[in-house]
């Protein structure tokens, strides 16, 4: 692991909201190596989700430096392109589009790329096969509203992987699931982390979940207080 290069390098990162009144990140220093599975833990409001959003280029930091997959996010203009090519995001509430079927939901990130319909179908089916659906040919045609919470999250994971990202960012991916489904999703994420050789960064407040990562870091009052490197 130590031979690998850093895929995420963060130094002195600061971010505040409400015109500086709410300080979310107060100087984060963090390095994550390529292929690592790390969990970010911390109490509610500690800044862990803000940190994840900074890594995913959903928002720009006020100060400091952040380089992800070789791209300086403080300077990069085409953040949408960065998100499309380098990042896969898994949300707590899956956020699938209700009027699209399972296959179409997985294809959504590819829709504005130059991928043909056939290639999109092929890639989406490949990933859905990895998700271990019992009756895949039927499931792909279903709307997500007809799936269980665990099944929806598996579709969301497939969607996150569809553009071959280098990094998967997961924000409380098991937060809305029961313990049995939680372990199933974690096993799936770990499996994908190995098979697809992606870096996995997961925010969680559940110690049992966090403990399954290669490394755990703790964020408190906008700073990484444990497990920086």
């Amino acid at each position: 692991m130590n031979d690998k290069e850093n895929i995420i390098e963060i130094h002195g990162l600061k971010k505040s909201f409400d015109k500086g009144r709410t300080k979310a990140l107060t100087g984060v220093d963090l390095e994550i190596k390529e292929g690592e599975f790390i969990s970010i833990m911390g109490p509610s409001g500690s800044g862990k989700s803000t940190l994840l959003n900074m890594i995913g280029a959903f928002d720009k930091a006020d100060e400091g430096s952040i380089t992800v997959a070789g791209i300086d996010l403080m300077k990069e203009k085409h953040l949408d392109q960065f998100r499309s090519q380098k990042i896969g995001f898994v949300f707590q509430l899956h956020n699938l589009i209700p009027n699209l079927n399972v296959l179409e939901n997985v294809e959504i990130p590819m829709l504005r790329t130059k991928t043909t319909n056939e290639e999109m179908d092929k890639r989406a089916m490949e990933l859905l096969e990895l998700m271990n659906f019992p009756n895949l040919s039927e499931t792909v045609k279903q709307n997500p509203t007809r799936l269980s919470g665990g099944e929806r999250q598996r579709v969301a994971i497939a969607r996150a992987l569809v553009n071959h990202p280098s990094i998967i960012l997961a924000d409380e991916p098991t937060g809305a699931l029961d313990s049995k489904t939680t372990q199933m999703i974690l096993d799936l994420l770990k499996d994908i982390h190995k098979k697809e050789n992606v870096t996995l960064v997961m925010v969680t407040h559940e110690p049992d979940v966090g403990a399954q990562a290669d490394r755990t870091i703790t964020v408190l009052d906008g700073k990484v207080v444990e497990g920086k490197t």
Binding site: F58, D80, R83, S84, F89, N95, I97, I108, P109, L111
Partner: peptide, 16 residues
């Protein structure tokens, strides 16, 4: 709104 957030998160441009 959330869906639009998701589309942006997966790399859609504002123009898309």
């Amino acid at each position: 709104t959330r869906e639009i957030g998701v589309l942006k998160a997966v790399g859609w441009k504002s123009s898309d």
